[in-house]
Simulated scan of single mutants.
Amino acid sequence: MTTEDIKGEYLQLIDCFLKGEITANEFSLGYLHKMKGDGRLFGKLYDLLEEMFGEANSYTDNQDIYNSDPEFYITDQDLRFKAVALSEKLRYLE
Rank of each mutant, 00 (worst) to 15 (best):
M1E: 14
T3L: 11
T3N: 02
E4I: 03
D5K: 02
D5R: 03
I6T: 11
G8A: 12
G8I: 14
E9P: 03
Y10R: 05
L13S: 02
I14P: 03
I14T: 04
C16F: 12
F17P: 00
F17V: 03
L18P: 11
L18T: 12
K19E: 15
I22H: 04
I22T: 11
I22C: 06
T23A: 08
T23G: 07
T23Q: 07
N25F: 09
S28H: 06
L29V: 11
L32K: 13
L32N: 05
K34I: 08
M35D: 14
G37E: 15
G37N: 15
D38R: 06
D38F: 09
G39R: 12
R40L: 07
L41R: 10
L41V: 06
L41F: 06
L41W: 02
F42V: 07
K44E: 15
L45S: 05
D47F: 09
L49V: 12
E51Q: 10
E51L: 07
E51P: 05
F53I: 01
E55G: 03
N57A: 08
Y59R: 00
D61T: 00
D61L: 08
D61V: 05
N62W: 08
D64W: 14
D64N: 14
Y66V: 07
N67V: 04
F72C: 05
F72H: 13
T75C: 10
D76C: 04
Q77E: 15
D78T: 01
D78F: 00
L79W: 09
L79F: 04
R80F: 09
K82T: 07
K82P: 04
K82I: 08
A83R: 06
A83C: 15
L86W: 11
S87W: 09
E88S: 10
K89A: 12
K89H: 08
L90P: 10
L93K: 10
L93Y: 03
E94N: 04
